[in-house]
Write a protein that binds this DNA or RNA. Structure first.
Lengths: 136, 136
DNA sequence: ATATTTGCAAACGTTTTGCATAGTG
DNA sequence: CACTATGCAAAACGTTTGCAAATAT
């Protein structure tokens, strides 16, 4: 949480109760958190911020690369870069599941970074298709 | 375009002037088309549909898997599954560039499909980071 | 003490909806 | 002919903004 604080300061922000709570929630359950779910989780912690505050905090944390926003089938999901993984997205029922992949793309990343003079911070990989139930 | 027509019928739709034009535009310039750009391209073809028609057509074509909607840094991009490729997304200037990758993920796809009883239709892979100019 | 954060209410833009008419198969 | 697609206007929705008060450093 010290590194987080540093990054926040670097981007001209302050480590408020809400920022801290959002980071904590994402660290606990790091994957596929929607705005709705986030609000629920905050409520449990007795934090009930205004709508605009949520927007502002998520925007700040995303811009400072502390969290990642990933829009899948039109819905915004937030995650924290930890336990890196990918997603299986069902086009039938819109369910999303994690897939572990190892660090299979590490080699490719280095190559691509070099070839394009591009500093890669992270990546996202989604497989779209139909889950077992929806293959009917 | 015959296969397209078939798919459209399968999903209870009709091959209208607008559907045809959207598919054609995406086939010509298959990558990263925004709604705005699409409207521009249609105008050149002397097709000036109502806003709601655009929404409805894009929604229909996406649901029938004829085109793909990919939201990157908050902006919706439409593509057609052709000349498969991936993206380098700059978090500094929001520029997006193609990366060719070979069919490197084919093996993985098959394995993942088998392990999860999941029928993969396509995938999207984005590398986020900073382009040469924005690394300052 | 100074600058950021917050809640509130209003403004804004995008997307969706209902309906009558036009167009497709 | 039956059914889908379209344009229009209104409604609904999510997001952004300006400001004064509260809070963090």
């Amino acid at each position: 949480m010290n590194k987080v604080h540093k990054t926040i300061k670097l981007f001209g922000g302050r480590l408020t109760k809400i920022k801290k709570a959002i980071i904590e929630i994402l660290l606990e359950d790091c994957c596929l958190l929607t705005k709705q779910k986030l609000v629920q989780r905050l409520k449990i912690k007795n934090i009930k911020p205004n709508r605009s505050t949520i927007f502002r905090e998520l925007s700040f944390l995303t811009k400072s690369n502390l969290i990642i926003k990933n829009t899948i089938t039109g819905i915004d999901y937030y995650e924290i870069p930890k336990d890196h993984h990918h997603h299986l997205v069902c086009l039938g029922c819109n369910s999303i599941n994690k897939v572990e992949f190892g660090n299979y793309l590490k080699k490719q990343e280095k190559q691509i970074a070099k070839q394009n003079k591009f500093k890669i911070i992270n990546h996202s990989l989604e497989f779209y298709g139909y889950c077992h139930k929806c293959q009917a």
